[in-house]
Amino acid sequence: MLRTLVVAFLMAVSVSAQSPPAKDTLERFRQLRPGDEDLAMYRLDWAPSFEAAQRRAAKEKRPVLLVVIHAKYGDMISGHC
């Protein structure tokens, strides 16, 4: 009887919970996932290109703020620049 209960308990545990390494991973994810305070750059209304920004500016009657980078590479939207 006791053995049956132990087996039933272990089976219940195995199907009703994430494994400890999975739990640890999800906890680490929660710790490391950037929050809004870390992502303030994405409060800005980015356009994918200067041309796209100018089209929107003309249509929406809004100004454009353009960052000009003197370099071969500079993806300000992703942050790889």
């Binding site: 980015w46 290109s49 200067f50 454009v64 703020l65 980078i69 003197h70 370099a71 071969k72 500079g74």
Partner: peptide, 8 residues
């Protein structure tokens, strides 16, 4: 807001 990159 937009960015542009290049050389002279």
């Amino acid at each position: 807001m937009a960015s542009w990159h290049g050389h002279r």
